[in-house]
């Protein structure tokens, strides 16, 4: 993906800001090996998604459906539990689930120890950004937050 394509994705995210403004930064090159859900789950070797043709990975025992409840349960298999707010909290790492029309999950981001968020943009690059930086047409809005203990977030 060349720079123009990178920016084409970025341009669909109006809250992300201007490249070089400090509002976001690229943290990896393009790879199709993992997607946003996998990245939020801490994995880089496979893509997570409950697609009906069963081509994506989905945790066993969790309903294979694109609902907020199923995504919360999927992260629950990694020890995440619902929490009220996305604010950085000592001793906990957080995940944000973004939904589009009909509350259909579209994206997930993982909180970093500095309080900002990490997202994989489909098959494209990873970026570090503010919570609402990836809100927009493609990924919807962050509506559900989950947390689990992690001493790195001291």
């Amino acid at each position: 993906m060349d720079l123009i394509e990178e920016f084409a994705v970025i341009l669909e995210l109006p809250n992300l800001g201007v490249p070089g403004s400090g509002s976001f930064r690229k943290t990896s090159d393009r790879t199709p090996a993992y997607n946003c859900i996998a990245w939020a789950a801490g994995e880089t070797h496979r893509r997570w998604w409950p697609d009906q043709m069963k081509t994506g990975y989905w945790p066993k025992g969790i309903p294979r459906e694109s609902t907020l409840a199923a995504f919360v349960q999927a992260f629950g298999t990694l020890g995440y539990e619902p929490c009220d707010k996305p604010k950085l909290e000592a001793g906990f790492e957080k995940v944000a689930i973004y939904v589009g029309e009909g509350d259909k999950p579209k994206h997930a981001a993982r909180q970093l120890p500095n309080g900002r968020w990490a997202s994989k943009l489909g098959d494209e690059i990873d970026i570090e950004h503010d919570l609402n930086g990836v809100e927009g047409t493609i990924y919807g809005k962050a509506v559900r937050f989950l947390k689990r203990k992690n001493e790195v977030f001291g």
Binding site: E12, R47, Q52, G122
Partner: peptide, 12 residues
């Protein structure tokens, strides 16, 4: 049409 998309159902 699917640049940046992660939703496999939407992609396919």
């Amino acid at each position: 049409g699917t640049l940046g998309e992660s939703d496999l159902d939407a992609i396919c």
